[in-house]
Each structure stands twice: as C-alpha cells, then as structure tokens.
Design a protein around this nucleic acid. Structure first.
Length: 448
RNA sequence: CGGAGUGUAGCGCAGCCUGGUAGCGCACCUGCUUCGGGAGCAGGGGGUCGCAAGUUCGAAUCUUGCCACUCCGACCA
C-alpha cells in the first residue's frame, strides 16, 4: 500500500478522552474513531489488525475441530424467554421493538440461539460431539464503557459452543478449547495465563479466564511465576488425543483472579520468589456449564439405548476487538506501538527519503514490488514531502521493520533495515534487505 | 445508578470571572526556499463557541433546562 493513496489520519496530540496508552495510540495512529460512548469505527489500519487477529483465532478454532457459522446480531426475545434470561439479563441487554412491535434485542451473547440451532439440527447421539463457533459483533450496554476498545459496548467476539453426550466428553471439549486458546494468544505474541475464574452470569461449574499481565489491567491477578513462561502446545498437537495432561500442567500451579484469590493458599503453594501479583487483562474466558441451557431449551438427542440424552454444553469466548487494545498494552514503548509481526497492520514500512529523486524512486518501486511478491505487507511512504515527518510516523504506527532508501546509501548500493523493537539498523544491499525482511516475516508468523 | 468534571476549527487549548459578535499551536491549502530523520518564510481556507429558552440594545461570556462525552465508584468479554 502506498501511503499517498492510503487513509491513515495520524494525530500529533493525544485526544483528551483517552486515558490508557492503547486507546491513545489507537486514536493517534488512525486505527479507530469513536462514534459514541463505547462504540467505534475501525479505520483501515485498525481494521487490518482486527482482521489479522480474527484470522488467527479462526485458524486455531478450526485446528481444534470447531466449525464456523455466523449468527445474526439482532435476535428475537422469544428464545431468551425460554432460557429465562430475558428477564435476568437486565439493562445490559439492548432491547428494541421492530415495526410490528415484536420485542427484539441486539445479541450480547449467543447461547440461546446456538442451542436452538443445534437442537433443531440433530436427533442422534451420532451427531455429537460438535463445537460450533462464530465471530460476530456483540452489544452489551455497559453502565460505563471505558478504555477504548478494551471495554466498549459494541465489540467483536469469537464465541464457541460445545455439545457433548456426557460430562466427561464435555471436559474433553473444554480441554480442546483450553489448548486452542493457549496457542491462539501465543501466536499474537502474548503470554496468556489461564486462571481459575468465577463463572458469573453464564453459570456452570468449570471456568478459566485467560489473562495477560499489563499495568493497565482491570483486575488484580495472582499466579505462580512459572506460568508466565509456560510451554505452549505445538501446531501438530493431536486434538483427538487426551489433552488432560496439558490442562493439568497449566492448571496445577496457582493462578487466580482477584475474586477467586485465596491469599493463604497462594502463600502456601507458591514460593516467595515465584509469587506474581500483578494486574491483568482478560482476553478469553471458557466455561463448562453442563445442561444449563440445553435443559430449558430442550436440546436432546437419542442415545444408542433409545433414551433421550440432554446435551452437555460449554461456551468459549475470545474478545477479538479487545485483543487489539490488549496487544498494544503489552507491546508498546515511548515512541509508539511495537506490533508483533503476525498482527501488525503491515509487516514493513518502505521509506523513500527523497521522493522525486529518480534513482531513489526507482529503487523504492523495485523493492516495493519485490517485497509484495515475497508475501510482505508493505506500507510504502512514497510522499513527496519533507522527509522528517514520515519516520516517526512509522515508529508511532509500529511497523515491525522499516526499509529506508535514500540517495546517499544508494551511491554505495545500500539501503537500511531498521528493526522497530530493538531499534537496530543494518546497512544492506537491496537484495539482502529484501531477504532479511522476508525471512523475519516468515519467522514472525511462527510461535516463538 | 451515586460522586466529580468537560463541551470554543480535524487534534490540543486560550478567551468566560469583569457581556461589545472569536483567537493561539499543530494539521490543511497556495507559493518560494528546503530536503539523511517531526523544515523555514510569506499568503490563505475552515467555527451559527454542544442544544434550547431566558435576561440584555447586544451573549462564547450571565441564568435555567436539556444533551453529549470523560474520570472515580458499583458492574462486566
């Protein structure tokens, strides 16, 4: 993409409504604009990041055997009456009548709808186990939205729902999502920690929150230090195998959110030097809740003995839009965002230090074409303007690599490659620069 | 929903106390000079001062009501 044809409205000053760094940086780098409290438009750069995160989530869901569907944002109140949640949900649910005065709502979650869909589509125990997910906008009319996309009213969420014949099978489904989540967040450059959690209004018995540590986290968390550097299951993990050992490894050490924290147990089980007390951002939450929804909604299948079996369910959420903010909270420095390669809006910036100079333009055009061919997403700063303003823009926007091309270097047949994270610069031939960037991008898409 | 604040150009702000018809920095447009890391000079465009009512000869400024947004708390992916 050429900057001269792109829409990247950068702000030099920080808008005053933004309190936390991710919100400030998202506004400044032209990723989002607020349209009303807790509701945002995604501008091109932000939308790219959102889509990259969404795609990683999708790939790992698919890898774990979940099947993608798409349910609507607007739902009818009827189903919610069946589950009993229409009254229970309260003011967080946005309700409105349609033209026939039917009661409608903007979905805050989808347990009811997916259960009805699944119920109406299966008859036999042979149709289980299944896990259906979708990635769709949700709306929860929060009393107090804040922190930009970290706590908006409208947000993009991946929610998966598992259907099993027995609690034991249900636990296996839970484990599959548990492992998928560890991989999902690791692929985005995050160190997520599963923590015992309260199941809250969704209900149920087994629940873990996936949390990343960040100063601006909303809640206090406590865990064993070993969990921060835990080993993430590899891509070739067999999701049909027994994943309980992986689950045990990750849950045997102490980790709890504030509301579940047991100070005495923490001190008993975790040696002093390993105790981590920090703030955390919740980026995923998984629940096993048995028949809480399948029972009232009548989601049953016929078993081999001819008897009806009420399906065991779990639900598994990832805050996709929240992750954009969460990643920035975890990955930034004084100069701006430092994107992990897999979620960066562009892998690399190509900077023309002297647009209008024939040799420089030609070298840039050549590199631009070749980087594209090599599978590198490039933002090409081709603007015929004063050079200075561009570079800090690249740093602010946080592109992982920058290829800097100017007449002086070209005299010696070289360009510069700058690494955003370390700030290191290397003087290379254009061919070597191309190879280096392509290799870095390929390496960056693997789990470290 | 309780408490506290803020609304003046795209962003950041001054002006309001002590009413006289709007200003600064950045951004934007034009020209010239510049050009290896957030350029300089000159010229210029853009605002019914959140909305409404009131007071007044006259309201960004005073009064009242409303709306929006932000922060702290309670609540939450």
């Amino acid at each position: 993409m050429r900057l001269s044809r792109y829409f990247l409205p950068i702000l030099r000053d920080t808008p005053k409504e933004a309190e936390i760094v991710s919100h400030q940086l998202m506004l400044r780098t032209g990723m989002i604009r607020q349209s009303s409290a807790g509701i945002y438009s995604w501008l091109p750069a932000g939308f790219r990041v959102l889509k990259k995160i969404e795609q990683i989530v999708r790939e790992e869901q698919n890898r774990a055997g979940a099947i993608e569907v798409l349910m609507p944002t607007v739902q009818s109140a009827d189903l919610w009456r069946e589950s009993g949640r229409y009254e229970a949900y309260g003011k967080e649910m946005l309700r409105f009548p349609d033209r026939h005065d039917r009661e409608m709502l903007y979905g805050p979650t989808n347990e009811e709808l997916i259960t009805a869909i699944f119920r109406d589509g299966v008859r036999s125990y042979k149709d289980l186990p299944r896990n259906l997910y979708h990635i769709q906008w949700k709306f929860r009319d929060e009393v107090r939205p804040r922190f930009g996309v970290m706590r908006g009213r409208e947000f993009l969420m991946k929610d998966a729902y598992s259907f099993d014949l027995s609690p034991e099978e249900g636990k296996r489904a839970y484990n599959r999502m548990f492992v998928a989540y560890l991989r999902t967040f690791a692929r985005m450059g995050l160190k997520s920690i599963p923590m015992a959690a309260e199941s809250g209004p969704i209900g149920g018995s087994l629940s873990h929150e996936f949390v990343i540590l960040a100063e601006t986290g909303e809640s206090k968390v406590y865990c064993h230090g070993d969990l921060v550097a835990g080993t993430v299951p590899a891509a070739d993990t067999d999701f049909d195998s027994d994943l309980e050992p992986i689950f045990k490894t990750w849950t045997s050490k102490y980790a709890a959110t504030d509301d579940q924290h047991d100070a005495a147990r923490f001190e008993r089980e975790v040696p002093k030097e390993k105790r981590v007390e920090a703030r955390g951002i919740e980026i995923g939450h998984i629940f096993f809740f048995g028949t809480k929804y399948s029972e009232p909604l009548g989601c049953r299948v016929q078993g081999p003995d001819g008897k009806m079996i009420t399906v065991q369910m779990g639900s598994y959420g990832v805050g996709v839009s929240r992750l954009v903010g969460a990643i920035i909270e975890a990955c930034h420095d004084d100069a701006g965002i430092v994107w992990p390669i897999p979620v960066a809006p562009f892998h690399a910036g190509l900077v023309n230090l002297k647009a209008g100079d024939k040799a420089t333009d030609a070298a840039c055009e050549d590199l631009y074409a070749k980087l594209g061919t090599a599978g590198v997403d490039v933002l090409y700063d081709d603007q015929d303007e004063r050079a200075g303003a561009k570079f800090t823009g690249m740093d602010l926007v946080g592109l992982p690599l920058q290829v800097i091309v100017g007449p002086k270097g070209l005299k010696d047949g070289t360009v510069e490659v700058k690494d955003r994270k370390s700030g290191a610069r290397e003087t290379l031939t254009p061919e070597a620069a191309l190879a280096k960037v392509a290799a870095a991008v390929a390496a960056g898409d693997r789990i470290a």
